[in-house]
Simulated scan of single mutants.
Amino acid sequence: MDRRQVLAGAAAGLAVGAAGCVDSFTSLDGVSYGREPALVADRPDAIYYPTHTEEMATGGMAMTDDGLAVSVSYTFPHRFWRVFNRDGGYEAEQFGVESDDAVHIMANIWDAETGVVLPVSSVDIAARGGNNVDERETVYAMLSQRMGFHYGDNYHLDGDDTYTVDITIGATTARRFGDFDGRFGDPQTVTIDLDYSEATRNELTYETYEDRQGEPGALDPMSMEMDGMSMPTGRVRELDGTALGTGLADDIRYAAAVLTADRFGDAPYLAVTAATRYNELVIPSMGLAGTLTDSDGEAVVDSASLEPALDPELGFHYGTPVPDATGEETATVDVTTPPQVARHEGYETAFFETPTVELS
Results as ranks from 00 to 15, higher is better:
Ser144Asp: 01
Tyr151Thr: 15
Asn154Lys: 07
Thr162Asp: 15
Arg146Cys: 14
Thr162Gln: 15
Asp160Trp: 04
Asn132Gly: 06
Thr164Cys: 06
Asp158Trp: 00
Gly152Val: 02
Tyr155Gly: 12
Tyr151Gly: 13
Tyr163Asp: 02
Gly148Phe: 02
Glu137Pro: 02
Tyr151Glu: 12
Asn154His: 10
Asp158Asn: 10
Tyr155Asn: 09
Leu143Ala: 12
Gly159Cys: 12
Met142Pro: 05
Glu137Leu: 03
Tyr155Glu: 09
Leu143Ser: 05
Glu135Pro: 01
Val139Lys: 00
Gly148Val: 12
Thr162Arg: 15
Asn132Trp: 06
Glu137Arg: 12
Asp134Asn: 14
Tyr151Arg: 14
Thr164Leu: 05
Tyr140His: 08
Leu143Tyr: 10
Phe149Trp: 08
Asp158Gln: 07
Leu157Pro: 00
Asn132Val: 03
Tyr155Pro: 13
Tyr163Arg: 11
Asp153Ser: 09
Asp161Pro: 05
Gly152Cys: 06
Thr164Asp: 04
Asn154Leu: 05
Asn131Thr: 14
Asp161Trp: 11
Thr162Leu: 14
Gln145Val: 01
Val139Met: 00
Asn131Tyr: 14
His156Ser: 12
His156Leu: 15
Asp160His: 09
Met147Leu: 13
Gln145Met: 06
Met147Cys: 06
Thr138Met: 00
His150Tyr: 05
Tyr163Leu: 08
Asp134Gln: 10
Asn132Thr: 06
His150Cys: 12
Thr138Glu: 00
Asp160Glu: 08
Thr164Tyr: 02
Gly148Asn: 03
Asp153Cys: 03
Asp153Trp: 00
Asp161Cys: 14
Met142Phe: 06
Gln145Lys: 04
Val133Ala: 04
Asp160Cys: 12
Gly159His: 08
Phe149Leu: 07
Asn154Gly: 09
Arg146Thr: 13
Asp161Ile: 08
Asn131Lys: 12
Gln145Cys: 08
Asp161Lys: 09
Tyr151Trp: 14
Asp161Thr: 13
Leu157Val: 14
Ser144Met: 01
Arg146Trp: 07
